[in-house]
């Protein structure tokens, strides 16, 4: 399901790097979109693990909220310190293209993770296919509605965390495309929140007031998932309603457990951080890398949430990297 094998093969192809890494403390800078989100903390955790394995110093950078201008300044000052490599998740596709190309041109390899940038001047791009994730959400929702009502029919809606973000837009597009396969599911609404849990909660309650016969909702990130899950749990609708949300943070996992969330579409942020640093280090030593690596999405429901394969993806503290490092 997760395409770890491609990653595993490329990561284990650099055993020699370990020997050279032990001599000098090189730095790899990891720049995320927003430090206030648990998702990006998981990226940092993965990067730290890679730093330990490779004996590298990991510089963890990012602005508190998605802010392209701030991220460009952070990228420029990080590049100025000449790290071995830079791992970055661009906040805005168009805005980060030229700054990334400039860093590459100055000789520092750049590994792009999670979201793309408008340039081809990078060493590798590790990402979730967000559209695939959105389609998986539509499928999970249809399956849930079918389980509960007998057929995949009724009104559904989706909740967007923020307007104009490439990865969120792709998830929403994937969700809408995915719904096309279920002609009896009609999309009746979309609201945009301020990427804030309480607002996601209010909007969910209001959408349920507008369409009291709403049967499903897609929440396109962790903040929206937590907010929508709280609204569903407050109304005790868990066993009737089909809420599918992206990512997994503690709030979402609690709601998956209490039945308010039917399914979580999860990515592998730990691996993006971990492999991002490995790739950056490899690129700094002249290793040729695959241009594009899909780190995969998976769908977790209450039925399979205790599957050991998902343990480390639902809770980063349980993450083990045995397939990669033999630990």
């Amino acid at each position: 399901m997760f395409r770890k094998f491609a990653l595993a093969a490329s990561v284990t192809a650099f055993p020699l790097l370990l020997a050279t890494a032990a001599q000098a403390q090189d730095t790899v800078s990891v720049i995320v979109k927003a430090t206030t989100s648990e998702y990006w903390q998981w990226v940092f955790k993965g990067a730290e693990q890679a730093g330990k394995d490779l004996n590298l110093t990991i510089e963890e950078l990012g602005s508190p909220k998605d802010d392209a201008a701030a991220q460009i300044s952070i990228l420029e000052s990080a590049a100025g310190k000449k790290p071995a490599a830079i791992v970055i998740s661009p906040t805005i596709y168009e805005a980060l293209g030229d700054p990334i190309a400039a860093v590459t041109a100055a000789g520092t390899p750049v590994i792009v993770i999670d979201s793309g940038a408008k340039t081809d001047q990078y060493a590798a791009f590790l990402t979730t296919n967000n559209e695939t994730g959105g389609r998986a959400a539509a499928d999970a929702m249809a399956q849930c509605i079918k389980e509960r009502t007998g057929k995949a029919a009724g009104k559904v809606a989706f909740l967007t965390a923020m307007a104009g973000h490439e990865s969120l837009d792709s998830r929403d597009k994937g969700f809408k495309d995915g719904l096309a396969a279920y002609p009896e599911l009609t999309l009746v609404g979309n609201r945009v929140a301020n990427n804030e849990e309480a607002e996601g909660m209010s909007l969910t309650a209001d959408m349920l007031t507008k369409d009291s016969d709403l049967v499903g909702l897609f929440a396109d990130n962790a903040q929206m998932g937590t907010g929508a899950g709280t609204a569903i749990s407050e109304k005790s609708l868990g066993d009737k309603f089909c809420l599918v949300a992206f990512d997994s943070d503690k709030g979402e996992v609690e709601h998956l457990n209490d039945g308010s969330i039917y399914a979580l579409v999860i990515q592998d942020p730990f691996m993006m951080g971990y492999a991002g640093v490995w790739y950056g280090y490899a690129a700094a030593h002249g290793v040729r890398l695959p241009r594009l690596v899909d780190t995969g999405v998976g769908v977790v429901t209450k039925a399979n949430m205790n599957d050991p394969a998902f343990a480390g993806l639902l809770d980063v503290t349980k993450r083990s990297l045995s397939p990669f490092t033999g630990k």
Binding site: S37, K65, N194, E196, E197, A198, M201, S233, G251, E254
Partner: peptide, 16 residues
């Protein structure tokens, strides 16, 4: 009250 309402606390809450 926000924590009571959300039943979790997130560092991103209360934005703006």
């Amino acid at each position: 009250l926000l924590v009571s309402r959300l039943s979790v606390a997130s560092p991103s809450m209360g934005n703006a």
